[in-house]
């Protein structure tokens, strides 16, 4: 289980980016974090990844405190961040340097196959389209089989069609080993199609406002009325999170309490 306990972050310049954010995420759960711009979503994700330390509060994975990058936690950024001097295959194998070469090659080949880029193994990153590059980034993050995969707006730079394609693809890959996914997104559609639970954040300082369970089976039909219902409730919650006249509810009371519609 991934546990966030009163995680707060104040940047050296005095910006209070995150205030006492608490949440518990089950192993294998898919959680989407949604909220207005600048409400601390990236800050939260970087704290979970161990890239930046929280000012106070703790992040624990199976009761192990996370203060620096951890082998069981992977992250995918908004940009693919491929290393331009490595071929696609070497990029995917980047995190497997400790494995013997043959085993590494096998895993990379399997991952390439899995993301449908087997024919691009020897290509340079600059020769890929945006969607292909992000696929490689996904493969690179998944190939060491992390228990937790963090995604910070991973598809926001892509066109709507490619985005849908990759959302479905991500679910497909997730089903292989069922890692915990924590996904930051601006896209309500994306949150509802992927997540078991949507956490809505509220800005200044960034804090948890609401959580919405998405009780929908998979695969999800983006056009079903039920899907539309969930989208509407997430949107309404988002609107309320930005409305200063709405008081904070105690989101730590858990889901159910928050289902006010």
């Amino acid at each position: 289980m991934l546990a966030l306990d009163r995680v707060s972050k104040t940047y050296p310049n005095g910006v209070h980016a995150l205030a006492r954010f608490s949440a518990e995420i089950r192993q294998g759960e898919i959680v989407a974090i949604i909220g207005g711009s600048g409400c601390g979503k990236s800050t939260l994700l970087r704290a979970i990844a161990g890239l930046d330390r929280a000012s106070s509060g703790t992040v624990t994975l199976d009761s192990e405190a996370i203060a620096s990058p951890h082998a069981k936690i992977g992250i995918i950024f908004q940009e693919p961040r491929l290393l331009p001097w490595l071929s696609v295959a070497d990029n995917i194998g980047f995190g497997l340097a400790d494995l013997p070469a043959t085993e590494r090659r096998e895993k990379v080949a399997r991952a390439l196959e899995r993301v449908g880029l087997a024919d691009k193994a020897q290509a340079w990153p600059r020769e890929l389209s945006g969607g292909q590059a992000q696929r490689v980034a996904i493969a690179r993050a998944l190939v060491p089989q992390p228990e937790v995969l963090l995604l910070d707006e991973p598809f926001s730079a892509l066109d709507a069609f490619t985005r849908r394609d990759l959302q479905d693809h991500l679910l497909d890959l997730w089903a292989d080993t069922r890692p915990t996914l924590v996904l930051v997104t601006h896209d309500v559609d994306e949150a509802v199609v992927l997540a078991d639970r949507v956490l809505v954040m509220r800005p200044r300082p960034g804090r948890l406002f609401d959580q919405i369970e998405i009780n929908l089976g998979r695969p999800r039909d983006r056009n079903s009325p039920l899907f539309e219902n969930f989208k509407r409730s997430v949107l309404t919650s988002l609107d309320r999170s930005l409305d200063r006249s709405v008081p904070d509810r105690d989101a730590t009371q858990g889901p159910g309490q928050a289902m006010w519609w």
Partner: peptide, 16 residues
């Protein structure tokens, strides 16, 4: 810095 972060995520040692 973004590429250096990739190195940090994969927990490269200083020399690596």
């Amino acid at each position: 810095r973004k590429i250096v972060e990739v190195g940090r995520i994969f927990r490269l040692s200083g020399p690596a």
